[in-house]
Design a protein around this nucleic acid. Structure first.
Length: 577
RNA sequence: GGGCCAGUAGCUCAGUUGGAUAGAGCACCCGCCUUCUAAGCGGGUGGUCGCGGGUUCGAAUCCUGCCUGGCCUACCA
């Protein structure tokens, strides 16, 4: 149940009945303050202006046409022409009962499911995953889970970088190790070290560099030995990724990998198609598309280069081929790209060109979901203490260790095994949540202490709130499934909690629409805080039976919502911590 | 040079697309454990929303001009 949608529809209909033009938005929002009720409609003033009438008078006419008697106990006009809606406690209680009996927290599946292709994570296989991949991977996965929860068909696309000149260098190094009879799989167990070693050879050894360049050519021309070597490398690198995904609790698997190299055979077709449509122009030996949309005031256009001087293709070409594949083979209605904000211009160009060239249907939505950079405390991109790029796996190990130390100091009597598991969940979720809870588009500062803190909008706080409820339920010794009866909203804290619980769907839909998981984080933090307030003010297990029954159900609803919400974020819950 | 993004409390961040008196957490101050996990809860101090104009019933949000920072800007991805 989405209250905002319900009120929007009802009030909008009443506005039209009151003489407002069709489609006038009611602009229903959660009220800013309690004295303004639960929801407020802000749309009257704008319409009144267009109609040149008094907004308060219009609001009165709208209210006369509006029947909310089933859900609201009071509807009033306030200020310059707001309509404030005060919902009925009885109705909230009924909604919660439905929420409890639903296996989907009473969230409606979308009427018309879409095929949503989501491009996320997409590491470069030449190196190991590092902090730079955290945001795309974690945010993309949360949005993917949310879209699926709402009933959309999601196609995950891990657009990994497995092609390009740096692979010549890596293959040359593999060759050398093999010639020296060294253990290659051993050397590849740490890709970062391997890459550095290969790079050193490439920079210092002219013969090696020459061989590396040869191997690039051989690879591109399909030499079988070379391809076998490349395959071996790619396979090991992908295995590293999968280990990281598993540690992170990310839903990406081998089947979702659609590497850059998969488009190789199609690149020439892309260029030919552009040529046939007269979109191509040679410039300085390169094949380019010049689009007016990317001209500056002097008429100079930043071109899209699709083929280099000498015939090589670029990432723009690959992305165009990918757009076509996603449209025609995957049948996408919507394509989301969780890619660094620095590539904004690139994607604008790709999207604009894709439309011009007819690579996508006009109604297909292509959306770049840019994100900011993870910063260190110095305000510069996050690095390890030694100044290198932080390997993601090492970062996650550290998170688990730090969390373990914290948890162990608080629970001296717990078994080592349980402590390790709690440390794992708390550590991983802290890193993920710290990322997810920030506005996607802005940079944020990576800070161990604040993300592992039990205070504020953090994973530990939410996990703790959940485990506290789990503890109450356990103590109650009541069969959760058979627990029924009315949910009575009496105390202010009960009401606040009930209201919050009914707003889960609004947060979920926001995440799906905007690709912004931080809305859900803010909601869950709010929910947990509202529960804590309720918990302090309203005894549960010590209350008389009917009250206890009602409050237990409120608690169970909270637990279910927290668990589901965290699951959408890709975060596990703990029954005890 | 041009373009994109950002600038909100001492610090870290929100702000539902133009709504009512700008919100959280940390830090600081004051309270609350013989009762369901105090890893918690309640209260308080703290703001020229980078600066100046403009648009209107109403602006952190929109338009414009500056200031500051980051990024992108033809053959890397």
């Amino acid at each position: 149940m989405n209250i905002q949608t319900l009120l929007n529809q009802r009030i909008q209909a009443a506005m039209v009945a009151a003489g407002a033009p069709d489609g006038s938005p009611a602009l229903v929002r959660q009220s800013a303050k309690v004295q303004f009720g639960d929801y407020q409609a802000n749309g009257i003033m704008g319409v009144a202006k267009a109609l040149k009438t008094n907004p308060r008078e219009l609001a009165q006419v709208v209210i006369d046409k509006l029947d909310l008697s089933d859900v609201a106990e009071k509807v009033e006009i306030a200020g310059p022409g707001f309509i404030n809606v005060f919902l009925k406690n009885v109705w909230l209680g009924k909604e919660l009962a439905e929420l409890r009996s639903s296996d989907h927290l009473d969230i409606d599946k979308v009427d018309s499911p879409e095929v949503v292709v989501v491009d996320y994570s997409s590491p470069n296989l030449a190196k190991e995953m590092h902090v730079g991949h955290l945001r795309s991977t974690v945010i993309g996965d949360a949005v993917v889970r949310t879209l699926e929860f709402l009933g959309h068909t999601v196609v995950r696309q891990n657009h990994v970088g497995d092609w390009g000149t740096q692979f010549g260098m890596l293959l040359a190094y593999m060759e050398r190790l093999r010639a020296e009879n060294s253990e290659i799989s051993m050397a590849l167990s740490d890709l970062e070290t391997f890459y550095r070693a290969a790079k050193t050879c490439f920079d210092d050894d002219e013969a090696f560099a020459k061989r590396a360049r040869e191997l690039v050519v051989e690879l591109q021309s399909g030499n079988e030995d070379c391809l076998a070597l490349w395959d071996e490398f790619i396979n090991i690198s992908l295995t590293h990724c999968e280990e990281t995904y598993k540690m992170l609790g990310v839903s990406l698997e081998r089947q979702h990998v659609m590497p850059e190299s998969a488009y190789n055979d199609d690149l020439v077709n892309v260029v030919n198609d552009l040529q046939e449509q007269g979109l191509l122009k040679e410039s300085n030996g390169a094949q380019c598309v010049f689009m007016d949309e990317f001209a500056n005031k002097d008429g100079e256009i930043t071109p899209v280069i699709v083929q280099k001087t000498g015939g090589g293709f670029l990432y723009a070409t690959t992305d165009l081929a990918a757009v076509r594949f996603r449209q025609h083979t995957l049948n996408a209605d919507r394509v989301l790209y969780f890619v660094d904000a620095r590539q904004s211009l690139h994607f604008q160009q790709i999207f604009t060109l894709s439309r011009k060239a007819g690579f996508v249907k006009p109604e297909t939505r292509l959306e770049h979901m840019p994100f900011g950079t993870v910063m260190g405390s110095d305000g510069k991109p996050f690095k390890t203490r030694s100044g290198g790029v932080a390997k993601l796996s090492a970062l996650l190990e550290e998170a688990q260790e730090r969390a373990y130390q914290l948890v162990a100091s608080k629970n001296p009597d717990m078994s080592e095994e349980e402590l390790r598991n709690i440390g794992r969940v708390v550590g991983i979720s802290s890193v993920k949540y710290a990322d997810l809870s920030k506005n996607r588009t802005s940079d944020y500062v990576f800070n161990w202490d604040s993300m592992l803190s039990f205070e504020g909008n953090t994973a530990p706080y939410l996990l703790y709130a959940y485990s506290r409820i789990a503890s109450i339920v356990k103590r109650s010794e009541i069969d959760v499934e058979s627990l029924t009866g009315d949910i009575a909203i009496v105390e202010a804290q009960e009401r606040a909690l009930a209201m919050k619980l009914c707003q889960f769907e609004e947060a979920v839909q926001q995440v799906a629409n905007d690709g912004m998981p931080h809305f859900l984080c803010a909601y869950l933090y709010d929910l947990a805080g509202t529960f804590m307030t309720f918990y302090e003010a309203c005894p549960i297990l010590n209350a008389e039976d009917s009250v206890k029954n009602s409050r237990l159900q409120l608690s169970l609803n909270t637990a279910a919502t927290l668990k589901q919400g965290l699951a959408l974020l890709g975060i596990e819950t703990l029954e005890r911590m």
